[in-house]
Simulated assay, not measured.
Amino acid sequence: MDKAAHAMPAPTAAAARWRPDLLPALAGLRHYVLIPVLLLVWEFGVRAGWIDGAMAPAPSSILAALVDMSDAGLLWRDVWASVLRVTVGFSLAAAAAITLGLAFGVWTRAAAYVNPLIELIRPISVLAWIPLAILWFGLGDKSAWFIIFLGSFFPIFTNTYLGARSVAEIHVRVAQSFGAGRWLFVRQVLFPSSLPYIVAGLRVGLGVGWTCVIAAELIAATSGLGYMIQLARTMIETEKVMAGMLVIGVVGFAMNAAMLWVERKLIPWAQPR
């Protein structure tokens, strides 16, 4: 009896070691339960004739089209083309927006003249720029880079400028009291204080840039996921259209997850508990 009593705490101690790591992961899976339920209902609805399979193909048909495009190598070519365009356009937008946002946080007089121009251009939809992009840069990568740049620039700039203008007054006074120059102030005070805003802007800007590349490829490109969807539409291959939409969602989800990882690494102190 004594031996059994002494042996009882061992499983409890072992459980205490794995439960803190395993249980949150298992609990997080319940947030995704709606997705398979909807897919099953959709599949059943098509097979039962409640949903027109020509207008909304069953998930099994979409998956089969996805496998066929993947085996042919066309899918990966178009995914790579779209991701590469977003990488270039987003990188240019991030560099320009962060630089200008921090600079205007320091030079407020210059910001007073430039901000009205930015606020005038910002509400213009990127779709309205596509005809000009084609006229200026032709079909292909350059026009897509331009559209992605416009879509990504404004969220990043707005958040960066807001962060630069939100630096605590006490931090500014401490830097001034220690005789910090403008460059030292930007590097040691302004940029670290603005970093949570910058990362938030980058996350939003990347999402907008990803939607912009699809819009640009629908009209102004000869490759990429948007072009693939447009080509499938002209051939009335609805399952390929929806397969492309699925890939767009998955890639966008992965991009957002990557940005969340970067956010946790760069600003761990700003993460919600």
Rank of each mutant, 00 (worst) to 15 (best):
W129I: 13
A220K: 05
W129Q: 04
L135C: 01
T158K: 01
S166R: 05
M228H: 06
W129Y: 15
I98Y: 11
L120Q: 01
G101N: 10
Y197N: 13
W183R: 10
F191V: 14
W107Y: 13
A94C: 11
A215K: 01
S166T: 07
A221Y: 01
E169Y: 04
P192R: 09
A144S: 14
I198R: 08
F149M: 08
G179A: 07
L117K: 00
M228P: 00
L206F: 09
T222S: 15
D141N: 13
G224M: 02
V189G: 07
I170L: 11
A97K: 04
I147Y: 04
A175L: 07
V106G: 04
A216Q: 06
G207C: 08
G201S: 06
G226A: 12
A164L: 08
F178L: 13
F185A: 06
S166N: 14
A111S: 13
L231G: 09
L127Q: 03
W183S: 13
T158E: 05
N159S: 10
R165P: 00
V167C: 04
A144I: 10
G163A: 02
F191D: 02
L195R: 07
W107N: 13
F153K: 03
A96H: 04
G209H: 06
A133P: 00
S193D: 12
L150E: 05
N115M: 15
G105M: 03
D141I: 04
P123V: 11
G209D: 09
K142D: 12
T222Q: 14
L231T: 15
L132M: 13
G163L: 03
A103S: 12
A180L: 15
A180Y: 12
I134N: 02
G179C: 04
P196T: 12
W183Q: 11
A133M: 08
F185S: 11
S143L: 03
T108V: 12
Y113T: 14
L132C: 03
F153C: 03
L225K: 05
P196W: 07
A175S: 12
T160S: 06
L120N: 09
I156C: 05
G105K: 07
R109S: 13
I124C: 05
A180N: 07
P192A: 08
W129V: 10
A144K: 11
V204R: 01
L132D: 02
R122C: 10
W210S: 13
G205P: 01
G181D: 10
F185I: 08
V172F: 03
A200H: 01
S223A: 15
G224V: 10
G163D: 07
I219P: 00
A144M: 05
N115G: 00
F154W: 11
I130L: 08
L132F: 12
I229G: 04
S125M: 03
L139P: 00
T160K: 07
I147H: 04
